[in-house]
Write a protein that binds this DNA or RNA. Structure first.
Lengths: 225, 225
DNA sequence: GATTGAAAGAATGTCTGACAATCCTGTTGA
DNA sequence: TCAACAGGATTGTCAGACATTCTTTCAATC
């Protein structure tokens, strides 16, 4: 028998499905930031019981994707700009490190996958499909983080990016940001392909900086509405 | 009325109490790594119902303090050395940054608090009270992280350190480690007091490196038993 | 003797229903 | 106008139940 044959499909529980569904809903902006989530409503909408829903909500609260205040229940956090900044700063710390490590560790196979992901983003960046932009960009990062050699770095980065997903999709929809982003990502990808760690780190730092600036920009725009 | 008088004590729910109790129990090594947690037993021991317990377990699972496998239930993760290394590497990244930021941002008041915490650790390091060593050391870091100006950095660092708490308390009990640790922490504290960012970062990096080496040492010792 | 198979027991996943405590809101009264 | 108060809405918590799945034991077979 092949040693790494992992046919064992983990059974999906209602709780897990619910966490995934809610997480996706939060990413998609289904819930207004600051709005409260009513357990009874969600139960009906999701077709599950209250205990299962509550377990899922506790998971999301621990991930900081929702807030839960005793006797008030869960709500979507309305992030302040200070919090968003703090998240972007830590994201920079982690992402620059991941890109640097990745440039030294990625295999040729995975490098090709990275270039394919970049190509996919290039296509999406020229389209009007906002969702495709976000998902293809996510794929690109995902490959980098998966090849930095440190699964903890990957895990924490994913958690952080999740918390600012709304800002990212908003800023990615702004005029010109996708094209700028594309140029920055090309720079990262090329530096990695050249195995140039310093250049890769610098490109990554630049990318996160610009992403933060774009997020601030979109946040200010939003505030004026 | 004083504007910032926050008398409103958040009501403590059974779920929160349970999370705290279990977290503390895990830190203290009450549960053997790898051992399974039986819901019905915990319910009786904690005097709570199964739904409340399960909510608490979901929180802990999201924090990665326990594993939950569908249809097998919760268990204490048995970390491999690779995972511990990965955690220490990310901890270094975050902690060095926090120390560097702290050296530029900490107030004189908080600096005194930091020096007091160091003195408390010095006392504990000479004693035989292993618990006191760990808690006073935690206080020291806690002040640094609270004064780095980035609450996200603080939050993630706390989560990471929690996951390796057992290794830290084990290595801190090893002959000589507490004294070495003390010397390293003095170096950090003095660099911060001198507002010397580079020296502070270097001292911090050195400290985490040594802590990781000590953890590996204690892990190897443990494995030989 | 080792391996397979079945059956019993244990533990988890999930639901329903219930009730007290708390929060929010709109109305009433001063 | 403002404060107190009732009412409804929502959450926190529990008890109990049952199907599903895992684990272990024991017997049967090769």
């Amino acid at each position: 028998m092949p040693p790494d044959l992992n046919l064992k499909v983990l059974p999906r529980t209602v709780q897990q499905e619910t966490v995934d569904k809610l997480r996706l809903a939060i990413f998609s902006g289904v819930f207004e930031p600051g709005s409260r989530l009513i357990e009874s409503q969600l139960c009906v909408q999701l077709g599950i019981s209250r205990p299962s829903l509550r377990e899922a909500l506790r998971s999301l609260a621990a991930e900081r994707l929702i807030d839960i205040v005793p006797n008030r229940g869960p709500s979507i956090p309305a992030l302040t700009w200070e919090e968003v900044t703090a998240i972007y700063e830590v994201r920079e710390l982690l992402e620059v490190e991941a890109v640097g490590l990745c440039s030294q560790r990625i295999s040729d196979d995975q490098l090709r996958a990275l270039q394919n992901a970049l190509a996919a983003f290039e296509t999406a960046a020229s389209s009007n499909d906002a969702l495709a932009r976000v998902t293809t960009a996510a794929d690109f990062y995902s490959i980098i983080l998966a090849n930095c050699g440190n699964p903890i770095l990957e895990e924490i980065h994913r958690g952080l990016v999740a918390r600012i997903s709304l800002f990212r999709s908003r800023s990615m929809s702004m005029e010109g940001r996708a094209q700028n982003s594309l140029a920055e990502m090309k720079e990262i990808c090329e530096s990695i392909a050249a195995r140039d760690e310093n250049a890769a780190r610098e490109a990554s730092r630049n990318h996160v900086h610009n992403a933060m600036a774009a997020a601030k920009n979109s946040m200010d725009t939003e505030a004026r509405l």
